[in-house]
Design a protein around this nucleic acid. Structure first.
Lengths: 206, 206
DNA sequence: AAGCTTTCGCTACGAGTCGTAGCGTATATG
DNA sequence: CATATACGCTACGACTCGTAGCGAAAGCTT
């Protein structure tokens, strides 16, 4: 998040303030959306001066990245005994997460801002997007252990497979939940999983 | 776009101004991005007073919808003789379209704004997103004519299939091009098409 | 041609947010 | 105790917003 390099000399920054600011940011996002998010409001909610925000985060964008990133820590791949069940469970978790008002308000706006700010885009990827690829890796490993999927032949090809599967899952859920604003009901998830399952076993034939 | 109901009495609105404003909006988006888009700038570029903008569009969001929507009119499904070729061509067109600076600047920001504005979300869907489903319909029809796909058994099921396929394609390309900012090279498109092709033929088995 | 109606360009305005600077105070280290 | 940093507070110029008011331009109606 911020730097904790040298044990500096003067008064240290309050760690409570960090948590309060991030929580206040999420609350403000949920209540007023991205457009209604003002630094003054966040500061007031957190019981902190506006200047304190600017001492810790260079701008609103970076602040929101840190505030939202923690939401994604809860995602986990639980081995349910079948590839279909595992996929459906993870997709459901992901869809529920994106349905939160904080996520709705923050994610697309962050992605939009990142369009013109390469540093922000990298930060978004590192803090929010890329870590979730672990879920695909875990799901594949579990399926391979069960014999549902063949073991990785070429590690490079396997990495590409993971990337494109992740792009597809993430993109479809983003489109469904964030862009369209439709709920990801179990029926949709079941159909989408069906769409995914065939190539997962067939992709190695070419 | 706007209303052209009754042939009103006084001075009619300049149709040239409409086109100039929409073109100026796209140019301003491409140059300064969503955050740098100001109504004053658009007005100056279009050679028009700022008040004229507000007489025609209630806010920046609706203006941008109309400015960007026309870009999507160029998408078309050309029968190339095989389902794979058709999918790849359409995905390539879509990816190229999203790679335009105007699209990069506008689309995700519009989606984000629509998150908190149901009327805007509906307008975005009607003007930008939903019309593109025609491409999936045309691709399916062509594949069915060729015998690559079985004819629709239940029209309701067919409609759901089209929806979920569209969500998946649109979402994956949006994620790849807009969110990640990665180019959609032919190799990625080929892999993604492989991912799609199996279920297109297998989805009717359940 | 005369008259009416609506649009247009221009200017000005209050409101709101931005990000920064300055100050005195609080809280840590050596 | 001296030093160094963080903190809260206030104030500030700059910017954009969306609106109101005005006189002039442009088309329709009789």
């Amino acid at each position: 998040m911020t730097e904790l390099t040298t044990p500096r000399r003067g008064r240290p920054r309050s760690a409570d303030a960090d948590l309060a600011i991030l929580a206040a940011t999420r609350a403000a996002l949920a209540e007023h959306g991205w457009g209604g998010l003002t630094m003054g409001d966040v500061a007031t909610r957190a019981g902190v001066a506006k200047t304190t925000l600017y001492r810790r985060w260079p701008s609103r964008n970076e602040l929101v990245v840190d505030a939202v990133a923690v939401l994604f820590d809860d995602l986990e791949m639980i081995d349910l005994g079948s590839l279909r069940a595992d996929i459906e469970a993870v997709v459901q978790q992901f869809a529920d997460l994106l349905a939160l008002p904080e996520s709705q308000a923050a994610l697309l706006a962050l992605f939009a801002e990142a369009t013109r700010d390469p540093a922000l885009r990298q930060r978004v990827r590192e803090a929010i997007i890329d870590p979730q690829k672990r879920l695909v890796h875990q799901g594949r490993a579990a399926a391979q252990a069960r014999g549902e999927l063949p073991p990785d032949a070429d590690p490079e090809v396997a990495a590409q497979d993971v990337d494109i599967i992740f792009d597809t899952i993430a993109g479809a859920v983003e489109h469904r939940v964030l862009v369209l604003g439709a709920c990801a009901d179990p029926q949709w998830i079941s159909r989408f999983t069906t769409l995914l399952l065939a190539p997962l076993t067939a992709l190695h034939q070419d």
